[in-house]
Amino acid sequence: MQTHCYLQSFKILYQDDCLVAIHKPAGLLVHRSPIDKHETQFAVQLTRDEINRPVFPVHRLDKATSGLLLFALDSDSARCLGEQFQNHSLQKTYLALTRGWSLPAGNIDKPLLYKKDKYGDKDKQQPTEPQDALTEYTCLGQTTLDKTLGKFEQQRYSLLELRPKTGRKHQIRRHLNGIAHPIIGDVKYGDRHHNHLFNDWRGYHRLYLAATSLTFKHPSTNESITIQVPLQNDFVETLTALNLDCAMLNHYQNP
């Protein structure tokens, strides 16, 4: 993804004296990484330059995931928000386009092995036993696509709203793959045949996973606050092409 694409989709969603929330485009790193040394644009840098003050990351989104990213504006707020993420006391909501027709709703309660970060965890002792992991989901819509793949002339897809109750690395992606509903565009845990189908059909080389809302306690007032973010244009256009732009998705559309 080119720099101008980042700048086009990057947006400040909310700001006060303690925090700032942005829309992170798919393909944009949160901060510098030795894994992607060629990258020159980062969410931390773009946000700092936009508001002209330092920002403190309190959580991460995968490079391939688009949507809501929260930063603190001082160390005390960063500590408060970081504790909420660590304790899983806030509510995160995601939207994902997946292969197959899912059940109307359900829980994925499956422990996951710790995923070691090649650089950040190299000197740390990490858990060796699987860790508890729970993801709730609701199916917002189902659709079919009249394109041949293998022996099937028609493909099935579901649009899921997901609420992870724990914060394991790649939890949603791993959980959905584990129930045979991998996310479209997931090159690590997904189905390469469906990924290629969508790349050829839509021309968007992206993961169809977006962080759409976050509910947490404000670090200064302790009041509950909810921030929502609309979907990136390419995500919306793909849902429209699949006839999944239903009324319940109105609050996910771009303003």
Rank of each mutant, 00 (worst) to 15 (best):
T3Y: 10
C5K: 15
Y6F: 15
F10Y: 09
I12K: 00
V20N: 00
A21N: 01
K24A: 03
S33H: 12
K37W: 15
L46Q: 07
D49N: 12
D49V: 01
I51W: 01
R53H: 07
V58S: 07
F71W: 09
L81C: 01
G82F: 01
F85S: 08
Q91F: 07
L95D: 02
T98D: 06
A105V: 06
N107V: 15
K110M: 09
Y114M: 00
K115L: 15
D117A: 09
D121I: 04
D123S: 09
Q126P: 00
Q126S: 06
P127L: 05
T128S: 13
T128D: 13
D132Y: 11
C139N: 11
Q142F: 08
T144W: 08
T144K: 06
K147V: 13
L149I: 13
K151I: 11
F152W: 11
F152D: 14
F152K: 14
E153R: 13
Q154T: 15
L159F: 04
L162N: 01
G167A: 04
K169A: 12
P182C: 06
I183F: 03
I183H: 00
Y189N: 06
G190H: 04
G190Y: 07
R192N: 09
N199S: 08
W201T: 09
S213K: 05
K217E: 14
S220K: 12
N233W: 10
E237K: 09
E237Y: 08
C246L: 14
M248P: 15
Y252G: 02
